[in-house]
């Protein structure tokens, strides 16, 4: 059994004549620790696929299972719990809550999990430090840069130490240099064992992934995997290139 199982997935929007199959029969599996980039032209159904995998968008047909859990057979509340415990989300638009500080944003997923306040506080601070934002903890999202927002969003996505990170164009609104910083963070996370599925338009970003899925018209057009670590970009800092990176967030 694979970690992620996507089988004959169909997601249709609308009904009858106006029906659009954004995802039209996609099947693949992902093993634990993989770093997968999802590529394809605009409107191909990448975001739709990701939202289905994010347990937020019930498919019209097909099966989606993570760690043996048939996600869409869960009751709505368990679906929420699944998102909290299994998934980390990084959205293109950051989606930080603007009236909460950076630290409070990072603590959001912990707000509804059990545990002592101090422990949650410590975990959020640790996650912030991990993305290099320890000094911006008490700023509001409006007071930090785009790259910092993306890093805050990553810190929030990983604060619960989810086994699967889903990212939809995490560098889409960043310049190439800040985008690279963010990609390095994601790569580092992957090296520490987190399975990553990332939608991207940029082939540079896709280069960080060891496997690339090409989606076209809601179908899987290609599925290619690199051999070993050879494709990791050369400008990756030495410390990060070493497997595991010697760092841990938990």
């Amino acid at each position: 059994m694979s970690f992620i199982e996507v089988k004959n997935l169909v997601k249709q929007y609308g009904t009858g004549e106006a029906a659009v199959a954004a995802v039209n029969g996609i099947s693949f599996t992902v093993e634990p620790g993989e770093f997968v980039a999802v590529m394809g032209p605009s409107g191909a159904g990448k975001s739709t696929l990701l939202s289905v995998m994010g347990a937020m968008n019930a498919p019209t047909k097909g099966r989606y299972a993570v760690d043996g859990i048939d996600v869409y057979s869960l009751r709505p509340e368990q679906g929420a719990d699944f998102r909290r415990e299994f998934l980390g989300f990084v959205f293109q638009g950051f989606h930080l809550v603007d009236y909460l500080t950076v630290l409070e944003n990072v603590m959001l997923p912990l707000a509804v999990s059990p545990g002592a306040r101090q422990e949650k506080d410590a975990r959020a601070k640790e996650a912030l430090a991990w993305v290099g934002l320890a000094d911006k903890a008490s700023r509001l999202p409006g007071e930090i840069s785009g790259g910092e927002k993306e890093r805050a969003a990553i810190a929030r996505a990983i604060v619960n130490e989810p086994p699967l990170l889903l990212a939809d164009e995490p560098t889409g609104s960043l310049d190439s240099s800040t985008g690279r910083d963010v990609m390095e963070l994601i790569l580092r996370l992957n090296r520490q064992g987190t399975t990553v599925l990332m939608v991207t338009h940029s082939s540079e970003c896709a280069g960080y992934a060891a496997r690339r899925l090409l989606v076209r018209d809601g179908r899987l057009a290609a599925d290619e995997t690199d051999a070993g670590d050879a494709e990791v970009p050369k400008d990756l800092p030495v410390g990060l290139a070493a497997a595991g990176g010697g760092q841990s967030i938990g």
């Binding site: 994010g54 709505p76 929420a80 719990d81 699944f82 959001l108 707000a111």
Partner: peptide
């Protein structure tokens, strides 16, 4: 609210 839900808040939260 979408963010809250995506991050794993239940409807009841």
């Amino acid at each position: 609210i979408g963010i809250f839900r995506a991050l794993g808040f239940r409807s009841s939260h």
